[in-house]
C-alpha cells in the first residue's frame, strides 16, 4: 500500500488490440487527491485508451493499475468504476429526463438530491424535468459530470470533456472541476488545448506514440504547441 488515499497509479502499462497492434507501451501515470494531472499529446497516441484502462473498460496486456495501492485487477470492476468515474469526450445523455439520467447513477436519489447534484455542476434546478436529449452540448456534458459525481468517485477521468463545447461552457466545467479538486478529488484530464492544460495542470504527463515522452520530448512538444498558437 502506498498509503495515499484516492491515488491512481498506472505503472508500465501496455495495451494491444485484438489484432496485435500495440497502442500503449509501458506507460506510467499517477493521479493524486486534490490534484489535476493533465494528459497531453497528439491525437491517436493512446490517451483515451489509457483512461479506459484506468476505468477497466479495457484491460492492459502488461503492467499494473493500482487504486489506493491495490491492484485494480483484483477489484470488482463495477465497484472500481464507481470509485474511478469517467466523463467522455462527447456528452452521452441517456433516454429520459435529466432526473432519469441522474438516477441511473444512483437509483434511490430523491428530488432534493437531484437538485443538489445539478447545483454542484452549476446547472439550474429547472432543468431537472427536461429531456436530456434537448440539452445543449455544454449542459449535457455538465449533466454527465453530475451523473458521474453521484457515484462519489475518488478519481475522475476526463477524456477531452470540453473539446466540442463553446468557451463559456468550457470555463464553467473547468471551474466546477477545480472546486471539486480543492475538496480532494483526483482528476486526470486529457486535453489538446495548451491554454487549458496550463490553466488546470498541477502536473502534466505527455504521451507520444503510445509511450511516456522523456522530459526533453515533453518540453519540445509543449513548446511546439506554444508556437502554433
Amino acid at each position: 500500500m502506498t498509503g495515499t488515499a484516492g491515488l491512481l497509479e498506472m505503472e508500465g502499462v501496455s495495451y494491444e488490440t485484438a489484432d496485435g497492434t500495440r497502442l500503449l507501451d509501458h506507460v506510467s501515470l499517477r493521479a493524486e487527491r486534490g490534484r489535476i494531472t493533465v494528459l497531453a499529446g497528439p491525437s491517436g497516441v493512446g490517451k483515451s485508451t489509457l483512461l479506459r484502462l484506468a476505468n477497466r473498460l479495457a484491460v492492459p496486456s502488461a503492467g499494473i493499475v493500482r487504486l489506493d495501492g491495490v491492484d485494480c485487477a483484483t477489484l470488482d470492476s463495477r465497484h472500481l468504476r464507481r470509485r474511478v468515474g469517467m466523463v467522455f469526450q462527447r456528452p452521452t445523455p441517456f433516454a429520459g429526463t435529466v432526473a432519469d439520467n441522474l438516477r441511473v447513477a444512483r437509483p434511490e436519489l430523491d428530488d432534493a438530491g437531484a437538485l443538489e447534484a445539478l447545483r454542484r455542476v452549476g446547472l439550474s434546478s429547472d432543468m431537472v424535468g427536461r429531456r436530456a436529449d434537448d440539452l445543449s452540448g455544454g449542459e449535457a456534458q455538465r449533466m454527465c459530470l453530475a451523473r458521474t459525481l453521484l457515484t462519489e468517485p475518488e478519481v475522475v477521468l476526463m477524456d477531452e470533456p470540453t473539446s466540442s463545447l463553446d468557451p463559456d461552457s468550457r470555463l464553467a466545467i473547468e471551474r466546477v472541476v477545480s472546486e471539486l479538486v480543492r475538496d480532494g478529488l483526483a482528476v486526470v484530464w486529457v486535453t489538446h488545448d495548451l491554454a487549458q492544460a496550463r490553466r488546470l495542470a498541477d502536473h502534466t504527463v505527455v504521451l507520444l506514440a503510445g509511450r511516456n515522452a522523456t522530459d526533453a520530448e515533453a518540453e519540445a512538444y509543449l513548446a511546439e504547441r506554444e508556437d502554433e498558437r
Binding site: L57, R78, R82, M86, T92
Partner: peptide
C-alpha cells in the same frame, strides 16, 4: 459510447 458510459457508472 452510451453503453460504455453506463458501464462507467458501475452498472452491470
Amino acid at each position: 459510447e452510451e453503453v460504455e458510459a453506463r458501464l462507467a457508472l458501475g452498472l452491470s
